[in-house]
Structures are given as C-alpha cells and as structure tokens.
C-alpha cells in the first residue's frame, strides 16, 4: 500500500513538474532575443547593445526596460537623421513589438544605451542582461562583446 502511495506521489510530482517546465518553455518562446551583441568599450564610457526581438505570442508586447550590472544607467535609444547630414540620438521610453513580428535593434537605429560602464568590456567578454516586457516574463541572457560586426 505504501509503495502504491509513493508511486502515485512520484507520478504527481513528475507530471506537475513536467507541465511547469512546458509552461516555462512556452513563456520563454513568446519573446525571443536573437543575435545579441554589445560593442566593446572602456570603463567609464558609453556603449550600445544590439539584437533582434521576435514576438511569437498571440498579443502585442513592449520592451519596457533593460537591466545589467555592467553600467550605471541603461536606456532605450534611437539614432535618427537630423537635417543637413547631422545625426542625433534620443531616448525612447519603450518599444512596441506587434504579435508575430520582429524588431531589429541595430546600428543607426534603435539600440540599448549603456551609460557609464563599471568595467572594461573588451571583445570576447560577455555580460548578463535582463530584458523586461510589459506582458511577457522578463528574460536574462548572456550577451557577447564584439568590437565590430564586419
């Protein structure tokens, strides 16, 4: 009898854990961060993080903030062309990503601005970055440091 009860408890735990794992996998796939990289920079400087953000979910979502211990302040920015061949950068509060679409954070466009780096970020290193969304669960990811992409 004890063996049967033990078997039932084991089965419940197994099925329960399995469904939690499946749920977590589903949640993590709702939003995908692809090809992330951050440009190398020295301690005290600013740099930028780039990636592709894919919304696989059934609802529109927004990237609302990014966290990392690598910098004193992190903001969502966009580089825009000003008149007469001038360039400027502006902070944007959040970035909406419609369901089933992909948003590219790339040089000369939207990027994550890391302000006042705490330490050197040489090419080849990596930093832990947490992405926060308005609906999807936050996700942490290791991001590789590169000098340039070409």
């Amino acid at each position: 009898m004890k063996k049967i009860i033990l078997l039932i408890i084991t089965a419940i735990i197994f099925v329960g854990c399995n469904s939690i794992e499946k749920k977590e996998a589903k949640i993590s796939k709702e939003i995908e961060i692809k090809n992330p990289w951050i440009r190398s920079a020295a301690a005290g400087m600013n740099t930028a993080l780039f990636f592709d953000l894919k919304n696989n979910s059934e609802a529109d979502d927004s990237l609302v903030s990014v966290e990392s211990d690598a910098a004193e302040l992190i903001q969502i920015h966009e580089t825009i062309k000003a008149p007469n061949g001038m360039m400027q950068m502006k902070e944007i509060g959040k970035v909406s990503v419609r369901k089933g679409t992909e948003m590219k954070f790339k040089p000369m466009g939207k990027h994550i601005m890391f302000i006042l780096l705490h330490e050197d970020l040489p090419a080849g290193d990596s930093v832990e970055v947490k992405f926060n969304f308005s609906k999807a669960k936050s996700m942490s990811q290791k991001v590789v440091v590169k000098d340039f992409t070409k």
Binding site: G44, N46, E72, L73, A82, N84, G85, M86, M87, Q88, M89, K90, E91, I115, L116
Partner: peptide, 17 residues
Amino acid sequence: DTSFVAGEEKVTFIHTD
C-alpha cells in the same frame, strides 16, 4: 542631452556625420 550619471556629466551631440 546632458545628464549627470553617478556625478559624472554625460553629454550627447547632434553632429555632422
């Protein structure tokens, strides 16, 4: 935009490319 981050002045520029 000029901001003070951890007491350090950070200035960005609108500039010719």
